[in-house]
Amino acid sequence: MKLGLDNINKAFESKVRLGIMSVLMVNDEVDFTTLKSLLELTDGNLASHTKNLEELGYIMSKKQFIGRKPNTSFSITEKGRVAFSEHLNALEVFLKNSIKQ
């Protein structure tokens, strides 16, 4: 029980950040608009969470212009992939233990 709790990553406790990481785990690169519509969020809300994950070094962003419109796309970093996998493992351990009890 204790083991599971220790490895649960606080950064992924928010549903939004969990969603962002899940999408980026299975896609090479996802732009801001797509991410926004998938998670059904407002611009500001998504921006604060992506900024947060970027500061942790879990995701990286790339800004470019498509025509005149600025476009930001995100991808997962190696550190983020490892952290998220560990989080998944911790969830698994937690659930296994809770079934035993």
Binding site: F12, K15, L18, G19, S22, V23, M25, V26, N27, V30, T34, L38, L39, L88, L91, L95
Partner: peptide, 12 residues
């Protein structure tokens, strides 16, 4: 958390 992860992976 698990169902959110699965949902997002499939939807995207």
């Amino acid at each position: 958390a698990l169902s959110e992860i699965r949902d997002m992976m499939a939807k995207s």
